[in-house]
């Protein structure tokens, strides 16, 4: 049995003259650019610029692997902090495992391309190069807020990578990873009691 609905006004796609495509795009790109500049991330960006101007997808994968490795360190640090409640520990373990799987999958893809996986970064200092504050976290809320910040940077970096990647399967793999990072954001925001989805477009944080 089915039921039918007539969408009437709900489905009207009236023009939005104040926002044409290029305006929206410019704003979106500005957000991504601001994310890179403000956070000093830019593992993705710096590695791309420094190591592989001409190696395209492989260079982007190396940077993405590096970023995932940093994220694993951040979750491991949070897990070992003694600051997380049992429910938060369960969430953090799951998300850490996801990040490890992302890194492993990207490493396989890089190897398939003939690239060399990057050396694993170590310690909190490696994380603080991406986002500062992990070392100073004093509470569960501090840690969760830090992890949200980091996940947002990861999302912004992947969004930028989508503009550069060429190979179809890599694009799709990265899209599925970006979706996972978005779900991480939801789980972390729920731990804080915050709005789990504050925007209709998740582009990462400026």
């Amino acid at each position: 049995m089915t039921q039918r609905i007539v969408p009437d006004g709900a489905a009207d796609t009236a023009p939005a003259p104040e926002r044409d495509r290029r305006e929206l795009l410019r704003h979106g790109l500005a957000l991504c650019g601001a994310a890179a500049a403000a956070s000093s991330i830019p593992l993705l960006l710096s590695a791309r610029d420094a190591s592989a101007q001409d190696s395209g997808d492989a260079a982007i994968l190396q940077s993405a692997i590096n970023l995932e490795q940093v994220t694993v360190i951040a979750y491991d640090t949070a897990l070992a902090s003694g600051l997380l409640s049992p429910p938060a520990l369960r969430v953090a373990r799951r998300l850490r495992d996801h990040e490890q799987r992302h890194a492993a999958t990207l490493t396989t893809a890089l190897t398939d391309l003939g690239g060399t996986p990057p050396a694993a970064p170590k310690g909190v200092a490696a994380v603080d190069k991406v986002v500062k504050g992990l070392r100073d976290a004093k509470s569960q809320a501090d840690l969760v807020e830090f992890l949200i910040e980091l996940e947002l940077i990861v999302v912004a970096a992947y969004n930028e990578a989508h503009a550069k990647l060429v190979e179809t399967r890599l694009l799709q793999t990265c899209a599925s990873i970006t979706g996972s990072e978005g779900q991480h954001l939801v789980a972390l925001r729920m731990l804080l009691g915050a709005d789990p989805i504050p925007s209709a477009f998740e582009t990462g944080k400026p």
Binding site: H98, H102, Y158, H162, I177, S180, E181, G182, V186, T203
Partner: peptide
């Protein structure tokens, strides 16, 4: 690049819906 912003938002929707159904909001790594 901007397509990823929508994909991620839809994935977030999925997470909240799963949570409302009593399931984990981030069930898989991909």
């Amino acid at each position: 690049a901007t397509a990823a912003g929508i994909i991620t938002n839809e994935a977030e929707h999925l997470a909240v819906l799963l949570d409302a159904l009593g399931q984990h909001p981030a069930p898989a790594a991909f």
